[in-house]
Amino acid sequence: MRTLIIAEHNGKLLNPAVQKAVTAAQFWQAPIDLLVAGGNDAIIQAAASINGISRVLHANAAHLAHPLAEDVANLILSIASDYQVILAAHSSFSRNILPRVSALLDVAMISDALAIQENNTYIRSGFTGSIHNVIQSTDHVQVLTVHSSRFAAASLGNNAEVINIDAPAPFTKTRWVSETHNLSDRPALSSAKIVVSGGRSLGSAEKFEEVLAPLATKLGAALGATRAAVDAGYAPNDIQVGQTGVVVAPELYIAVGVSGAVQHTYGMKDSKIVVAINQDPDAPIFQIADYGLVSDLFEAIPALTAAIKQPLQ
């Protein structure tokens, strides 16, 4: 039997988390296929170059230009009988699709696995990361998403075989209408090496931009935000770091005016180094920060920005 990875892309580029899903999939020591729905030549080439995979399965059809969960699920189901394990990196893309697949295969799904162990056993968190559950699946097929920051990225250099497969007929009861992207020159939040995140203490959308953007630019960092900051309208929803937003694990995470609610720390506690700058000395964020600075952020951040020698690349 084989292992299938659902490869996420944005129509232009393959998502780097696919490399981490490959490392997770290698646990089963079975040949690994990557399924790409839609996408261009660059995406297919990038997929085929990941070491450790056996084949890239490419389904291309007009209706996969903006892949719907219904269509991707039907595509996966059309080939599912070859696979004992079906997985993807956990994201809004995969968690939209794979539960639909698992229900139609009549198997339970394991969401956001932190670790994979022998005998279809997994560690996953519950209660917003406050507990770890060890669970064992009794199903014949494993359908799961993996917490990508817990898995190393598979290396590149492969030249795997690419096989074109047919897509099932489109699911016509759902139609793609439009999408909006947060246009930014900054690196993608989920894969940035440095993340600068702001909380509600920034006070307004203008201050959020005015205080944090110069620092992020100088560091070559992605900008993140807490749910409180997003709910208050200071930052767009797609830069929310946390349980209901993006999970990040950068080399350096700078939390500015962030209190440290579990909802937020769930999304950043795998960061290598955490710096917290907050006026409140009792803010819970200091309990998980490697370096804490109790200071007025409106003074500290401009000073920090000025003191950084040169823009990093």
């Binding site: 968190s125 559950n133 669970i135 955490v274």
Partner: peptide, 22 residues
Amino acid sequence: RLKLLKVSEPPARKAGIRVSSV
């Protein structure tokens, strides 16, 4: 379909140090 084998508190991230200035 899923058996719960064990529940535990996750290993806590340790607090580091306070710095006094930028």
